[in-house]
Amino acid sequence: MIEVSVKKVDNHFIIRWQLLRVEIPANDIVKVGLDDTYGGDEKEAIRIGIPYGTTDRVVIQTKKQTYILFTSNPSAIMTKLSA
């Protein structure tokens, strides 16, 4: 299984999963947290990754959009997003 990856380049975060590439300006991020629901609370959110029983959900709320990242390594993603 391919894991969701997050990398900071200059003042942007680049999220990659399979062929998807999302670039989020760091100053657009309003809130980062975890979501304990199966599919995420936000109905209009962009979901990245595969939701299954053992994955955690990292929620990135920006000024315009909400992203839910399905990952088995939430602490690494949270650390990168907090930098």
Rank of each mutant, 00 (worst) to 15 (best):
L81C: 13
E44M: 08
V9I: 02
V32Q: 12
D36I: 10
K43N: 09
A26P: 01
R21D: 03
S72M: 10
V4Y: 08
K43Q: 13
V22T: 02
N27S: 07
K31W: 13
S72G: 14
E3S: 12
A76Y: 09
S72W: 11
D28C: 08
K64F: 04
N27P: 00
Q61S: 07
I29L: 11
T55Y: 07
I77V: 08
D36N: 14
I60S: 08
S72N: 12
F70C: 02
L81W: 15
T37Q: 09
K31F: 15
Q65N: 12
I77Y: 11
K63T: 09
V32A: 10
I2N: 14
Q65R: 15
K8S: 03
Y67W: 12
K43R: 11
P74F: 07
I68Y: 08
G40E: 07
A76F: 09
V4N: 00
V9A: 02
Q61N: 02
G40I: 01
L34H: 10
A76G: 14
A83T: 10
L81K: 13
M1Q: 12
Q18D: 03
V6W: 01
S75R: 01
F70H: 13
K8W: 11
I60E: 09
F70A: 03
K31D: 15
L81H: 14
K63Y: 00
L34P: 11
N73M: 08
V58K: 00
L20A: 05
K8E: 13
I77R: 02
